Simulated assay, not measured.
Amino acid sequence: MTGQVFTSERKVRFADCDAAGIVFYPRYFEMLNGVVEDWFAGPLGVSFRELHIVRHVSVPTAAVEARFIAPSRLEDDLTFSLTVTKLGGASCGLRHVIECAGQRRFEATQTIVYVGRSLKPEPWPELLRARIAPFVETPA
């Protein structure tokens, strides 16, 4: 697979864990949302504040499928990787991988959709589409 990979790092916090000291599974979805938000604010050049508050558009999740591979524990340093599996007219397929010290902990696919003021899907704006395109996975 080629294409740019967006990566970020985050330490597992106490609030992320259950009583056994491992990441409580719904917290992974919150973490993924944070990665998507950072991807938009970083290389895509438009923060969620800009999208939601200024432009009155959003990128809600339409689908997500996850696989929990190994537990993550309090104070683990996690590395998040995001790539684009498909860029549609109004949708965007994302692939997420979370690792710790080279060990895969979690992976997911997610579909986000560009939604306008009407709360209906709309085509990606050309500038945003152009900034997403380099992250699309292509066969090696």
Rank of each mutant, 00 (worst) to 15 (best):
A101G: 11
D76G: 07
A15K: 06
F135C: 08
L44E: 14
L74Q: 09
T79L: 12
G45D: 08
A90P: 13
D16K: 03
D18A: 01
W39G: 10
V54N: 11
I53Y: 11
R55F: 04
K11E: 11
L78T: 11
P134E: 11
F135R: 02
R105Q: 08
D16T: 10
V115N: 10
F80G: 00
G102S: 07
F6A: 11
F80P: 03
G93N: 02
R10I: 12
G45V: 06
R117N: 14
N33V: 07
K86S: 12
E126I: 12
W124L: 08
A15I: 05
A15L: 08
S8W: 11
T7R: 14
I132F: 12
R10D: 12
A140C: 10
V57K: 07
S72L: 00
T85Q: 09
E137D: 13
A108I: 02
Q103E: 15
W124T: 04
L87K: 13
E99A: 15
S91I: 03
P139W: 08
V84S: 05
A90G: 10
A133L: 15
L94H: 03
V23A: 06
V35R: 01
R10W: 12
V23E: 02
M1N: 10
K120C: 08
A108K: 01
P60I: 07
V54C: 04
A62K: 02
W124I: 05
D18S: 01
G45A: 12
V5A: 04
R10A: 13
F80R: 00
L128F: 03
R55I: 01
Q103R: 14
L51V: 01
D38V: 03
R49A: 07
V84A: 14
R67Q: 09
E9I: 10
P125S: 04
G116R: 04
Y28P: 08
E107P: 02
I112V: 15
H56K: 14
F14A: 04
A62V: 05
T138Y: 05
T109K: 11
R104C: 10
A15S: 15
A63D: 14
H96E: 11
T83E: 03
V12F: 00
G88T: 06
E37I: 06
F48T: 03
F106D: 02
G88N: 10
R55E: 13
G3L: 09
W39R: 07
L44R: 10
V115A: 11
R67I: 01
K86F: 10
D77W: 15
A41D: 10
F48R: 05
Q4S: 13
L82M: 05
F6R: 07
T111W: 03
K11I: 11
A15C: 12
V35K: 00
V46A: 09
L94Y: 01
Q4P: 11
Q4W: 08
R67V: 06
